[in-house]
Design a protein around this nucleic acid. Sequence first.
DNA 1: AACAAATATACATTATATTATACACTTTTA
DNA 2: TAAAAGTGTATAATATAATGTATATTTGTT
Lengths: 192, 192
Amino acid sequence: MVHEKPPCIGKNIQRIRKQQQITLSVLAERSGVSKAMLSQIEAEKVNPTVATVWKIARGLEVDLDTLIKGESEKAKKFMVTRAEDTTTLETVENGPHIKVLSPIAMAEDLEIYLLTFEPGNVLESTAHEPGTEEYLTVFKGEVSVKAGAKEALLKEGDFIIYNCDIDHTISNESPEKSVVHMIVRFPKRQWE
Amino acid sequence: MVHEKPPCIGKNIQRIRKQQQITLSVLAERSGVSKAMLSQIEAEKVNPTVATVWKIARGLEVDLDTLIKGESEKAKKFMVTRAEDTTTLETVENGPHIKVLSPIAMAEDLEIYLLTFEPGNVLESTAHEPGTEEYLTVFKGEVSVKAGAKEALLKEGDFIIYNCDIDHTISNESPEKSVVHMIVRFPKRQWE
DNA sequence: AACAAATATACATTATATTATACACTTTTA
DNA sequence: TAAAAGTGTATAATATAATGTATATTTGTT
């Protein structure tokens, strides 16, 4: 998401520094950034370079994007999606029955599905963008999972994580129906 | 995670700009940062301020931390956790049977569980840190979910999202066993 | 209340980011 | 082939970041 305003780094730094109960002098020593500069930054009087902010993040022992992004005040969520309201995806012939559990607005980097494979059903997927992962839970039956050159047979209660930025396939080669919970985790959006 | 080196913003900017097939002049126009500056940044010859990088992120229509963090070269994951190897958590008396599906190393902000509630079982939780969310899929039976003042009865196939940085409870008030898939999503780690 | 210590901010100076312009190189057009 | 256009880089001038030091403010001690 492209923000309308530059990040309030100074405020974020000050909040975290106070939470950690350290002074400007201590942070200056830990970070290698002068006390005067830290004061100016916290007061939003200067626009620091990225390297300077990186040094401060190191001194505070937080990730750089923690300083860049502040706490966002969000309304508490409580959203139910009823079974009969979930979106069903039609896949190719001989594909599984797919229900989309996660609403679009849930999280931009997570999608959650419920897949029902009749015997012989196959779900073939091409490579997604680099860094994408899938997490599968087998609720019922068994499925075979292939990603790249690797393959595994999963039974009820098994769990798997794999990168799906390579071609990958899920199939039910057993004589019984199988039900799989699938989470697709994308890396943060990089460009349109 | 605290990095050992400052981020290679210039390289990230250049990669994304080339992926979008735009020139330095075009990016200069879109971002409000001079063409010469962009050239120096991409060549890692200068250390830009955060505001300048923010302008470039806007011009590229990407999130700021996309520029700050590059693509991480990771080995492809393919990790199976067998049903019999999943960790079982003992909860309080009359609590559900909890299996931890996600290995610790999976993702620092996601935990995945399989919960089995016998009739009458209750899982009470206190508030987690701000921004934490839970996503539940009811695989079998039905459960009642309460978060703060809100409550819902979920049946098989239903899905729910809620903030769990408030007290919340999941209970099986039906005469049948119920099975729930639960994902806990934490906000990014901010400090120790 | 007075003083000392700790902490934060102000300011002059130095270092470097940022821009406008010129130049170099590559690609396209006539 | 030569010229024009497009693209990226170099450079000097200007603006601002960053520091060392001094000063102001706040907190703690007597």
